[in-house]
Structure formats: structure tokens, C-alpha cells
């Protein structure tokens, strides 16, 4: 049981992904923008952040960089999930400090496996 923060500007993706994660027994907090995500992360913290890239105002990469440059949140693993699948996009994710990159569309199994792997790696 982990506390996850899900960030995506598409309401339906947010709702469906949340349903999948809750099915696996995680408690899920959602945010629809980078600013909201950072605020919620500062206030409540999380065990893992699942982050979309193409978002309004702040891109997922920028959010990730902000998470990883703040000593208080730096340890939280970040999973990027995005339709951007070009090699340079994937490497940009890792450059911004992301711990894993999941391509959309994904199956429930792929999502849960990625989440479990990151949680295990971070010692939760």
C-alpha cells in the first residue's frame, strides 16, 4: 500500500489510471497541473509520483526537475508516462531526473509493474 500522486491534464486518463492504481490497493492523490502537483507534494508528500509530460503551463520534465532539485522531495521516485516515445523524449525524461519512462498506451499490468518496481527500488 503506497501513497501515489498522479499528475495528468487529461481528466479521463486521470480517472482511468487512478481506478487502475486503486484496484491494486494504492491510495491515489491526483493533480491536473504541475503547480498543483508540486503544492500537493510539499503539503502531503507521496511515495511515488506518476507524471504526464505534455501538460499546460509546466511540462512534466519541468515538474520532475523541480521535484528532484528540492531536498525535501528529491528521494521520491518519479515515473513519467507519456505518448512521447521518441528516443530524445525518453532521454529528456531521464535527464530531468525521472526514474522510469512508461509509454502510453499502456496496459494495467505494465503500469502496476512499473509502479511496483519503483516502489521496491526505493525501499517501500
Amino acid at each position: 500500500m503506497a501513497r501515489l500522486l498522479l499528475v495528468d491534464d487529461e481528466p479521463q486518463i486521470r480517472m482511468l489510471t487512478r481506478a487502475m492504481l486503486e484496484k491494486a490497493g494504492h491510495s491515489v492523490e491526483v493533480a491536473e497541473s504541475g503547480e498543483e502537483a508540486l503544492r500537493k507534494l510539499r503539503e502531503k508528500g507521496a511515495d511515488l509520483v506518476i507524471l504526464d509530460i505534455a501538460m499546460p503551463e509546466m511540462s512534466g520534465w519541468e515538474v520532475c526537475r523541480a521535484i528532484k532539485s528540492d531536498p525535501a522531495t528529491k528521494h521520491i521516485p518519479v515515473l513519467m508516462f507519456t505518448v512521447m516515445t521518441r528516443d530524445e523524449d525518453v532521454s529528456r525524461s531521464f535527464e530531468s531526473g525521472a526514474d522510469a519512462h512508461l509509454k502510453k498506451p499502456f496496459t494495467m499490468r505494465e503500469l502496476l509493474e512499473a509502479v511496483e518496481t519503483l516502489l521496491r527500488r526505493s525501499g517501500r
Binding site: 486518463i13 482511468l16 481506478a19 487502475m20 505534455a54 521518441r86 496496459t107
Partner: peptide, 22 residues
């Protein structure tokens, strides 16, 4: 253009597939 087109095509596919699965 590439990222817009792939975003616009893949987002609905992702929604449909995930909704099917659920």
C-alpha cells in the same frame, strides 16, 4: 507536429484501451 499528432492520436487510444481493460 510529430508530438502533436502522436499526442492527439495516442491519448484517445490510451483512454479507450484503459477503459476497456477496466
Amino acid at each position: 507536429i510529430i508530438s502533436n499528432v502522436s499526442h492527439e492520436l495516442k491519448t484517445p487510444v490510451t483512454i479507450a484501451l484503459n477503459a476497456c481493460e477496466l
